[in-house]
């Protein structure tokens, strides 16, 4: 059975989720998520030893289509909502550190 979540774990999950939380957020979420996870323990009342996991309920498996060229959105429409662009590119801060020699 999983442990109840503490502030260190909440901070780790926030990092994995790419959410910069304030200390107040961490405190609030720790209490709320613990209460929710406590409730989830209810699932352990059920024996699921020979039960298959069910990811979706559809009567279909693989969906294939003809491999043919179709029109795409195009550069202008694709970039129209970009918060920052540089010509035909999405603009982001520098990713590689100059000192790494890369």
């Amino acid at each position: 059975m999983a442990e109840k979540i503490d502030q260190t774990q909440v901070k780790k999950v926030a990092k994995l989720s790419r959410l910069q939380l304030t200390d107040a957020d961490v405190e609030e979420f720790t209490g709320q998520l613990s209460a929710i996870l406590d409730y989830m323990e209810k699932l352990n009342e059920l024996d699921t030893t020979n039960v298959e996991p069910l990811a979706h309920c559809l009567p279909i498996t693989n969906v294939l289509r003809e491999d043919c060229v179709k029109e795409s959105l195009g550069t202008e429409k694709t970039l129209a909502n970009a918060p920052q662009r540089d010509g035909d590119f999405f603009k982001v801060p520098k990713i590689l550190d100059d000192s790494s020699g890369a």
Binding site: V10, L19, L21, D25, F29, L37
Partner: peptide, 9 residues
């Protein structure tokens, strides 16, 4: 945020 955190966890 709460749901993203819960799901990530």
């Amino acid at each position: 945020k709460r749901r993203i955190m819960l799901g990530t966890y």
